[in-house]
């Protein structure tokens, strides 16, 4: 279980990035956080991962407060961030170096098979395609068996086909161990395919503007009318949050030049 309780974040230069974020995730729940750039969604994820520290409030994972990276919390970044000097298997095993060799190798082989890269164990990262590299990154996060998995726009750098493929794949992986997942994305469709619940964030300062449950049964058909309808609803709420910008802040009209 993951609790985000009254969390705020102020940058050293005084800018407020997040204000009073409160969220509770049940074990195994998939939450998507959507919003435009600068709304603080990635900042929130970094706080939960323990890479950055919250200025206010607290974050609890299974009752333990997060102030630095925690073994029960895994993260997949927007870029694969593989270590180029390690082959695929060693990259996957990077975070479980403390385990006995036999168990480590067993886990690496198992997770590589799950992400469909069993034959790539001895390849270098430079030999992988973008989608393959991101699957290795997912394997690296999963091999430590986190109870919370954070995903920071994990598929945004991939082409549309690979993206849809990996979204389905992620759901298969989730179904096996059912970690609690927080997915940050700017892609509404991705949020609708994956999440149980969608939170829309709004910038200046980053805060939660709307929250909606996705009741569609899985697997979700991206072309079904209900899916389209849900997508329209989210888009409208996102539109509302963006249009609350005061008029005075609008960019100077081109005619003034």
């Amino acid at each position: 279980m993951l609790t985000i309780d009254g969390v705020g974040r102020v940058y050293p230069n005084g800018t407020r990035a997040l204000e009073r974020i409160g969220l509770t995730l049940e074990a195994g729940e998939i939450l998507a956080v959507v919003g435009g750039s600068g709304c603080g969604k990635s900042t929130l994820l970094r706080l939960v991962s323990g890479l950055d520290r919250a200025s206010e409030g607290r974050i609890l994972v299974d009752g333990a407060a997060i102030a630095e990276p925690h073994p029960a919390v895994g993260i997949v970044f927007q870029e694969p961030r593989l270590l180029p000097w390690l082959d695929v298997a060693d990259n996957v095993g990077f975070g479980i170096a403390h385990l006995p060799r036999a168990e480590r190798e067993g886990r690496i082989a198992a997770v590589l098979a799950k992400v469909g890269l069993a034959d790539y164990a001895r390849r270098w990262p430079r030999e992988l395609s973008g989608g393959q590299a991101q699957r290795v990154a997912i394997a690296r996060a999963l091999v430590a068996r986190p109870s919370v998995l954070l995903l920071d726009e994990p598929f945004s750098a991939l082409d549309a086909f690979t993206r849809a493929d990996l979204q389905d794949h992620l759901l298969d992986l989730w179904a096996e161990s059912r970690p609690t997942m927080v997915l940050v994305t700017h892609d509404i469709e991705e949020a609708l395919v994956l999440a149980d619940r969608i939170v829309v964030m709004q910038p200046k300062p980053g805060r939660i503007a709307a929250e909606t449950r996705v009741a569609l049964p899985r697997p979700r058909d991206r072309l079904a009318p209900e899916f389209e309808e849900a997508k329209r609803r989210i888009l409208r709420s996102l539109d509302d949050t963006l249009s609350t910008r005061p008029r005075g802040e609008e960019i100077a009209p081109a005619a003034a030049i």
Binding site: S49, L51, P69, G74, I75, F77, E79, R81, L83, F94, G95, A144
Partner: peptide
């Protein structure tokens, strides 16, 4: 970004 991978673990 690579250093952060180390910090995550």
């Amino acid at each position: 970004k690579i250093v952060e991978v180390g910090r995550v673990f």
